[in-house]
Design a protein around this nucleic acid. Structure first.
Lengths: 213, 213, 213, 213
DNA sequence: TATGAATGAGATTTCATTCAT
DNA sequence: AATGAATGAAATCTCATTCAT
């Protein structure tokens, strides 16, 4: 590895610490993951944490930003891929659903973050702000998907998105009973039912809306 | 209050302690809810806990049993009410969905229990056993509902049930943004879509089953 | 067992409790032996202790009385047996030494009692009083033994007795390394050396002492 | 005080803590000496213990090592001094006997250690190992002493050594009744008797061994 | 007399945090 | 920037003791 200058070296340390924090928090929960264990899991000693973060909660704050940025990236990749073609779009969603399920740690982390937000106002402020954006992005993806199928979203797109996100989080906690793909399968079953059951878009109306006639 | 004999008095103490534990755990999380706070919230001293439970985790074990017994009761009430009539059945489900949402604490508690099960093998053993029964009961309810609508359950009923439970749990964590019924509404939207999108039951088969010809 | 009247029944309970206390204290030490464990080892519940003793230390007080009474009995039996004949006397001592060693619990108990006496003035008062009698009895035995061998006790008989008692107590703690009789052997080696090395009694002096001329 | 670097500073802390532990354990017994009291007696806060030892028993382990190292040193000093001259050797033993007695705390500590070894297998393992060495060293001293007096050790030297050690330990517990030197006096009386009563070494054999004729 | 629920002080231990190096 | 010794608050759990039954 090339020699790092001071700034790069510090960024690297931060990154390692955050990664270790993620692992420890998923494994033990925020309250039970100790600062010392996090530091040691990252290959540092206790003090490294306090050279990089003011306190324990600050690690969690950094963790959300990173976590939600990643989720948004995943969503946007699928949005980008699903242009113009319903089948491709559905394939993208399927890929996303599998992703969600393939790393249950992500779901557990999301839940740890949400639980902590319920209990720490300071944390909730940052968390909710970040979450709003997240839901909006998901809502856009959902709206787009329904549109490709020529269907009307039943209710607010962001509500449907919230539902799908809640569903996949809720499933992350369930014991899978050896069936690792169950979660993804359930998410898809639900999503497909939502699309199928949704009313078709009134063509005239739609084209009017689109063409402005 | 009528005078209690010793056994009744102890049962009352246990009940109060468990109730307090439920409140404290929802408020602070299992790791952060302290034994002392639980005891004091119940109006007892710390030691009372240890006269009634061998350790902290034992309170949680008792809590599941109670929690899941209550959930089962709620489900069975709705099952019982919904005999033969799809509209009544759906009304029952709506009532259930509202219940689920009206007490978000239940959802948070369910999540605390599940998280703890991920981390404590001893707890997981009891929890998963109890959970299996729970999912089976939910599955029966789901199967019944689809049958009333003359539809075929898409996949395993217990999987659909798991999905609905996961959904309502996941939603319990989301900040509602002042819209308290959103959770129930989303659950219903999903459920109705599942029913509507499900394929109809083959009539001949169904009537044969029903009439026994 | 014949039916006991109230007084006998109580005495029986006390006896069982004290016996259980002895076992528990030897096993765990006075500080670590819990009142509840003692009661349960005796087949009673916690409250039985407090119906029979004012507090924990009171059990220990009762234990000394019993313990030292037993030791004195053992000594006196050997004194009685060893009349007039040096060989018989030595055989008695040998028997005693074996006894001492065959039940190392007695030594451990004696040490627990002595340690507690160092730390609890209230206990020390009773203990030391009882101990004085004990040493006097041992001293008499020693004096008698030397006399039978026509030897003069080197120093105070009660000091020699203290030494032998201390020796056997100290040995009770040592790990025997599978050689269970080592303790008794060592005590005898020491005692025989003391007798052999002691100066013979000046006959004239002795008879003068006896006849009071 | 000279400024200490980190390593020295920690070594100093450890030393102070162990010293305080020794005092507290002698005063109150291992079970009753609290970690907090030990820390405070050393002038530190409770947590300092846990920066230096994994748990309470670890302090005791450190204490043995130190305690037995000191005892060995004392023994070896006396061995070294007593070269070739019986009177000097006996004076050395007398000095040692006085030492043993002059600090009854050492005896009490030795007993606390032995009692704990009876009850904690983990501790026993370390303790017994250390003890074996100790007895061997004492045995060598005893053998040397008898040799200087031209006497044959009655039995195994290490057994005689065990006896003398047990004797002085047992005496450390006895109330002295204001006579502080009694213990040392008794130990000497016993030792001298052992030497005097021991059979002389066969001269021919001995001189042959010595002169090689 | 005996029971055992409840008390509450106190024990060991963990851990976020501080700070000298 | 990183270390890790030390702090001290707080947590879980134990246990002698009290007291209503």
């Amino acid at each position: 590895m090339a020699k790092l200058n001071r700034e790069e070296s510090q960024a690297r340390t931060r990154g390692l610490l955050i990664e270790a924090a993620r692992r420890e928090i998923v494994k033990k929960g925020f309250a039970t993951a100790s600062i010392r264990d996090i530091a040691e899991a990252a290959g540092f000693s206790l003090g490294a944490i306090y050279s990089n973060f003011p306190d324990k909660e600050a690690i969690l704050l950094e963790l959300i930003q990173q976590h939600q940025a990643e989720e948004r990236t995943r969503i946007e990749e699928n949005l980008a891929r699903a242009q113009g073609d319903a089948d491709v779009a559905m394939a993208g969603i399927e890929a996303w659903a599998e992703t969600v399920n393939s790393d249950p740690d992500l779901g557990v982390l999301a839940i740890e973050l949400q639980l902590h937000a319920l209990r720490s106002p300071a944390f909730a402020k940052v968390y909710n702000e970040s979450n709003r954006k997240h839901r909006r992005a998901l809502g856009t993806m959902i709206a787009h998907l329904f549109e490709l199928f020529g269907k009307k979203v039943p209710g607010e797109p962001s509500e449907i998105a919230s539902g799908l996100a809640a569903l996949s989080r809720g499933l992350a906690l369930s014991p899978t009973g050896g069936d690792d793909d169950r979660g993804g399968r359930i998410v898809l079953t639900f999503l497909k039912a939502l699309i199928e059951a949704a009313p078709s878009v009134d063509k005239a109306k739609k084209s009017r809306g689109k063409t402005g006639e």
